[in-house]
Amino acid sequence: MDPRQFEHTVVADNDIHSIVMSYLLHNCFNETADSLASSTGVKQPAIDRDNMERRKQIIHFILERKALKAFELTEQLAQDLLEKNKDLQFDLLCLHFVELICAGNCTEALKFGKTRLAPFGKVKKYVEKLEDVMALLAYEDPEKSPMFHLLSSEYRQQVADNLNRTILEHTNHPSYTPMERIIQQVTVVRQYLTEENGKDAFPPFSLKDSLKG
């Protein structure tokens, strides 16, 4: 889309700083947030620092293959959150099961699977994924199994993001940042314009391309 069509639209620096700030706080980049505040003078919204520290730790634990610690810390931070969000509870327990198998601790994995994961097998929506997770037991090298995606950092990141959003929601904070919402909105609007006016007038939107400038 030709930038000349929108370059006269004024965007205040302060708004951009606020958008970036909310993104940093949402994702627990608190030191970067402090740095941004001191260099731009943008006000930091009132946010529970303790909550942010805990969230940061939880995300860190998930990414560092310590899902059970993340589980315990989440329970401390928001007591009934995982009890209410069975999907998240299931994802965290699956991650721990995967960690045990990757560490070669199969006896422990079996015990954990029986006590903590097997009950989810009674709920239809979990059965397929549960069987994928359990099937890892059949492989000496889980990395070479058809379920290798369960070991990927992308998968862990996805679980961490979901948990982070849920904690924010639980503590009455928005679960999506303004930055995400703006990108989502632009994507949808551009998609709509492409469909309505044809690809020549409005080529399909690509976030990657627009970031290149």
């Binding site: 029986k114 069987e131 359990m134 037991l137």
Partner: peptide, 18 residues
Amino acid sequence: GKEKIHRLACDIVYSNEM
């Protein structure tokens, strides 16, 4: 077949033996 082997893995988790 893979499917049956995966099924076996599930069976040993679901079983009450151990």
